[in-house]
């Protein structure tokens, strides 16, 4: 396995839906690549775009923001704000020379263990295809 690219992915999971969905994937013993480090936040709307941008500048190969399905946010509208914010951030990423697909927004509910597995597996594959973060070199001066 040596030499193969193992991506580093940061996964922000909202406490009420996606974090619980990830736990359910665990209790169901669904296997997935270890590439995503999950970070619990109360709501997808809590995810600061500055933090996501920082993650990319510091070398993250991908960032996943996962929250409740539209209409199901525990705080009513957090996921709509997240969607809006990250649509803008994706545009900024392109101008920085980062493929916007490196940022993924997904909706995973507390009962969707298999979907969580699917999201993690697919996203990891996608990032593997894209290869390492291209701006990492520049910023590691």
């Amino acid at each position: 396995m040596k030499g193969e690219f193992t991506p580093k992915i940061v996964g922000f999971l909202c406490n009420w839906c996606s974090y619980a969905g990830a736990d359910l994937a665990g209790t169901s013993k669904l296997k997935m690549p270890p590439s995503v480090s999950s970070i619990r936040v109360m709501c997808s709307g809590r995810v600061d775009p500055v933090l996501v941008a920082t993650a990319f500048l510091r070398g993250a190969d991908g960032v996943l923001v996962a929250g409740c399905h539209p209409g199901d946010c525990h705080y009513e509208k957090g996921n709509y704000y997240a969607r809006r914010r990250f649509a803008i951030l994706k545009k900024v990423m392109e101008t920085l020379g980062l493929e916007s697909e490196r940022l993924r927004l997904s909706w995973v509910s507390a009962s969707e263990g298999p979907r969580f597995q699917e999201v993690i597996t697919e996203f990891t594959e996608k990032i593997k295809k894209l290869g390492p973060n291209p701006v990492k070199e520049k910023t590691s001066l």
């Binding site: 109360m42 709307g45 809590r46 600061d48 775009p49 933090l51 509208k77 914010r85």
Partner: peptide, 24 residues
Amino acid sequence: CGNCSAACPSGAASHKHFTFRQVY
């Protein structure tokens, strides 16, 4: 919910126990 702290452009709004520094 922490929405305000994600939206605040000046870093003035801070979400306790999920501060920028802690999550960083």
